Simulated assay, not measured.
Amino acid sequence: MNLTEILASGAVSAPTRLNPLQLFLDADIVVQAVILGLVLASIWVWAIIVSFQLKMGSVRKRSREFEKLFLSAREPERLLDDGRRTNPSLRVAKAGLEELARSTGSSGRVIDRNGAAARVALAMEGQVATEADSLAERLNFLATTGAVAPFVGLFGTVWGIMNSFFQIGQQQNSSLAVVAPGISEALFATAIGLFAAIPAVIAYNRFSHRVNAFEARLQRFADRVHAQVGRELEGL
């Protein structure tokens, strides 16, 4: 009985659905390496998404609480020494007040009020930029994965299709049964590439917006601190 007769008689039953694990196990070693790399990248992407979501929520809450206390305190300098309140807003205010202390010196007097106010503003603006850069540091991996993963998956697909055509030449058989498994495995690499890239792109755009919004919030807080410093300088 030949293959056609076997298939006609139902002795061999084709799989009713795709099995991703079996596709991976049957794939060429190069395609397997591509898929494994993309899976690891996808895992790391989701780890960054979850950790950044938790971190951003905690940072925003602590900064909001500190800003409320700082702006309503009679002696806000004392809040800067509380190690339990380490957050971006604290570091921004601390940078400004430390620059004010350097400008006034031990005597508590300042010669150039406008120059001192400008230096305080620059110190806080620099700290705001540093805090934003620190928050956005890990987002670079999301951007890289979103841009590169589809092309890595495409490389695996191209390699798998090349291997399928090689099998046609080796077996001298252009039947779909010869090339279909290799093409399926190859296209699976592209699917995994998209699976890694799509969440990375969405998360990067969303988190970049949140970092920019938080940076703007820090800048507004720095402006209010600068206004308080300006009033203090006027009284010196």
Rank of each mutant, 00 (worst) to 15 (best):
R64K: 13
G108V: 01
L69V: 09
S63K: 05
D112F: 02
P88D: 09
R102A: 03
S103R: 11
D81C: 10
A116F: 01
V120R: 07
N114A: 15
R102Q: 12
A117R: 09
P76H: 08
R119K: 15
S106A: 14
G108S: 06
L90H: 06
L100K: 06
S106H: 11
A95D: 11
D112V: 01
A118K: 08
N87H: 10
R74C: 07
V110C: 14
E77Y: 01
L79E: 05
L71H: 07
A101R: 15
N87A: 12
S89N: 01
E65G: 02
R109K: 10
E99T: 04
I111T: 15
S103A: 10
E99H: 05
L90C: 05
E75L: 03
P88S: 15
S106M: 11
R91H: 08
N87R: 03
S106I: 11
A73Q: 10
R91F: 08
R102N: 09
R78F: 07
L80S: 12
R64D: 13
V110E: 09
E67Q: 06
D81H: 10
V92Y: 13
G96V: 00
R113A: 07
G108I: 00
L100M: 06
F66P: 04
A93S: 08
G105E: 09
R91G: 05
L90D: 03
S63W: 04
T104P: 09
A101N: 11
T86F: 06
L69R: 15
D112M: 05
R84D: 12
G83P: 00
V110H: 12
A101Q: 15
E75I: 05
E98R: 15
A93V: 01
D81L: 15
A117T: 02
R84I: 12
R85K: 14
N114P: 00
R102T: 02
D112Y: 05
K94M: 14
L100T: 01
K68R: 12
G108E: 08
G115H: 05
V120N: 13
R119W: 08
V110G: 10
P88H: 09
V110W: 13
L69N: 13
G96C: 07
S103H: 07
R85G: 07
L79V: 10
G96F: 01
E75F: 06
G105Q: 09
R109C: 00
S63Q: 02
R64L: 12
E75P: 00
L97R: 14
A101E: 14
A101H: 14
T86N: 08
T86P: 01
G96R: 02
D82Q: 04
V110N: 11
P88G: 05
G108T: 07
R64I: 02
S63E: 03
A73M: 10
R85Q: 12
T104K: 15
R85V: 11
E67V: 04
L97W: 13
K68S: 09
L80A: 13
R109G: 00
L97T: 09
L100A: 06
S103L: 07
A117D: 03
S89H: 04
E65L: 10
V120E: 02
R113L: 01
E98K: 10
